[in-house]
Amino acid sequence: MSTSRVITWEVSESKGLETAWIEFDGDALRARGRAVGTTPEPYWISYALDTTDGFVTRRLLVEAATAHGTRMLDLRHDGEGRWTTNGERVPQVDGALDCDLGLCPLTNTMPVLRHGLHRAPGEREFLMAWVAVPELTVEPSRQTYAHLGPGLVRFASADFRSDLVVDADGCVVDYPGLAARLTAA
């Protein structure tokens, strides 16, 4: 069964806003979004995210614009653990299943849903293909997600920790220090 959502977040970390149009189809999702921020410098991004079954990232296409010009990123996962950016291999993120678009609360959804961490006990560590915004560079990021209670998931990476409030679809409602939902439809 396919369902659609539109969510807008106030992104305090970037002093901006993000809106995502999300389609859930079984255990896959497609999304497109736009964000504008003023920190670390004024920027806007536009992105399209596509996952395979199991909410594993297939492709993240991002365009970022700043006063210095426009950048494009085409991040692809081959389904066997290998990644490319704009056609070039990125071996440092091999083995990752997910992308994590910086300053974007939507990309926390995939690992939460894949393991049902918004509903049931568990803790998982992930290697993520983390995308810096607005630079659009890709780096490895070790992250841990742990179920704290229904709709409450702890996110940790290095020495950073935040307890995320998520809805029944695994989408962020409140990410203290990063973003808070303004609307949902």
Rank of each mutant, 00 (worst) to 15 (best):
R142C: 04
I22A: 13
F126E: 15
G116Y: 09
G102M: 07
A158M: 08
H115E: 15
T19H: 11
E18A: 09
R32C: 01
D159M: 13
F24Y: 11
E10W: 08
A120W: 12
A168F: 12
L49K: 12
G26R: 04
D100N: 08
W130G: 04
Y145F: 08
W83G: 14
L17F: 06
E23I: 10
V138H: 03
D27K: 02
E80V: 14
W21E: 12
V93D: 00
C104N: 15
S12P: 02
R124E: 07
Y43I: 05
M128K: 04
H147T: 14
L182H: 02
A129F: 03
G16L: 10
L152G: 09
T39G: 00
A179T: 09
R82L: 09
P176G: 02
E125Y: 00
D78M: 07
D167R: 03
V93E: 00
A67Y: 01
E80D: 15
A156C: 08
S4F: 08
P40T: 05
E88W: 05
E139L: 09
V173H: 03
A67V: 00
C171D: 02
A146M: 07
G54D: 14
R58N: 08
A96H: 11
F155L: 08
T39P: 00
V36R: 12
P42M: 04
A67K: 01
S14I: 15
L148T: 04
S14W: 07
V166K: 03
A20C: 11
W9F: 01
R32E: 01
E139F: 06
G122F: 00
L164M: 09
H147D: 12
E10T: 08
F160A: 03
G177R: 06
L60T: 07
G33F: 10
L73W: 00
R32A: 02
W130V: 03
A185M: 07
D159V: 05
L17E: 06
V56W: 02
C104T: 04
G151S: 11
A67G: 00
G149Y: 01
R154F: 08
R154S: 12
E80P: 11
S12F: 02
R30T: 12
R124W: 08
F155C: 03
S162L: 09
V90S: 12
V90T: 15
R119I: 14
H118P: 04
D50A: 09
D167K: 05
S46Y: 13
T19M: 13
I7D: 06
D98M: 06
A96L: 12
A185D: 14
Y47V: 10
C171G: 02
R34C: 07
G26M: 10
Y43P: 04
E13T: 14
K15S: 03
D74A: 05
A31D: 07
R30N: 09
P121M: 11
